[in-house]
Design a protein around this nucleic acid. Structure first.
Lengths: 214, 214
DNA sequence: AAGAGTTTGTGAACGCGGGAACAAACCGAG
DNA sequence: CTCGGTTTGTTCCCGCGTTCACAAACTCTT
């Protein structure tokens, strides 16, 4: 389920607040979902709660981590070390808990050897060797759209079966390979779509009442 | 609809290939969806196709752009110019077609004045003035998680009604404000989840047949 | 002009996920 | 030990979105 990471984040947040136990209602609120939905989701993993009591935060967190697969190590390669790739390499969510960036690859030879987030940028041609050496299963594409498909093909050929694609382009992959697309401009467009729709509804209403519309 | 941007991208791609007209079948393939679904989606916008012929690419592209709201200008502010904010400021999808980054804001005073993507980094306290001056409706949050909620509150107070959040944190906003969350680590976790599930299915099969698993 | 071949737009069935309501199970007090 | 209060796990129902299938409409050939 796509909501498991959200639950996990909520549990981590509770744990930081030293909360050891919680009800489905509390956790659902923290995660921003319906409590019935949360209980149904969790019941698919097994019976990790206690009726009349709730869930043990630490225990549930471990179970969800295990379900997602975060208890094992996931080596990751990032291809395309432009602005975005640079940001991804430094992003804590990538280096933390379970995921480990093992290589940064770029086609631009002038950047090879440059140090980013403690890793040297290497040539794209080293992909296959790196994948086999570290047993990489997940690849991140942060290249321009024009290069994305060929990079993806090379990844698949090297044995990578899960691809996170930031290039604004639909990738075609063979059966058995997963692709998740993160399209920044689409997100903006969806916001604009809703914004356009609600704009006429509030002709000159100032939400907070403190400032006018000038 | 969340699929409109995908169709738009497919149409742009066709246009680059100098294809002037296409059937729902072709466009659906390019967008990676079912043709019936595509036709139904498009029919919600109006009857922009011709039976027996198909859709005029240029015309349909304009109609979808107009539906999304890309024919008007959307000023955008980005708050948090770390690695990610830096990447976003330089991302072409943000500066192109309809969207225009009008300001980069950061709480760190030592970075004020620094030039990023042709814009000077300004102080976060200028948010309200900038929003009112340019009529900004969309804000992008690229700050650490700890600062995200307060930044969001300030945005809402300044009059922003659509927020694109890259901080790994669920934001709470009043009625009428839209938030879209882009959570990079969640995406990785979802990939890991699927990867873990299919791993045992291919014990030692090399997809390409060229290389062993060592 | 008429008919054959296409392709859109839409009506109807199907399946799936969400939400409310309920039974089972657990804790604590008396 | 029993009973009331609480919370999980589950069942049932509803609505939405997807998909199939077909009628309407357009083009081209004869």
């Amino acid at each position: 389920m796509a909501r498991l990471p959200v639950y996990l984040r909520a549990l981590n947040s509770l744990l930081e607040s030293e909360i050891r136990s919680c009800s489905s209602e509390e956790l659902a609120t923290a995660a921003g979902v319906n409590s019935a939905k949360l209980r149904k989701d969790l019941s698919h993993l097994g019976s990790y709660g206690t009726r009349g009591v709730g869930y043990d935060v630490e225990y549930l967190r471990y179970q969800i981590s295990r379900e997602i697969g975060l208890t094992q190590d996931w080596p990751v390669v990032i291809v395309g070390i432009g602005n975005l790739g640079h940001a991804l390499a430094n992003y804590s969510g990538f280096t933390s808990r379970g995921f480990r960036t093992v290589a940064l690859l770029d086609a631009d030879a002038t950047r090879h050897g440059e140090l980013v987030a403690g890793l040297k940028i290497r040539g794209f041609h080293e992909l296959s060797a790196i994948v086999h050496e570290h047993g990489v299963a997940i690849g991140v594409i942060a290249t321009p759209a024009a290069a994305a498909q060929s990079v993806c093909d090379e990844m698949v050929a090297a044995g990578i079966r899960s691809v996170l694609n930031f290039a604004p382009m639909v990738l075609s992959v063979p059966e058995g390979v997963d692709v998740r697309m993160v399209d920044l401009s689409s997100e903006l467009q969806i916001l604009a779509y809703h914004e356009q729709r609600k704009a006429p509804l509030h002709p000159e209403a100032a939400p907070t009442g403190t400032a006018g519309v000038a």
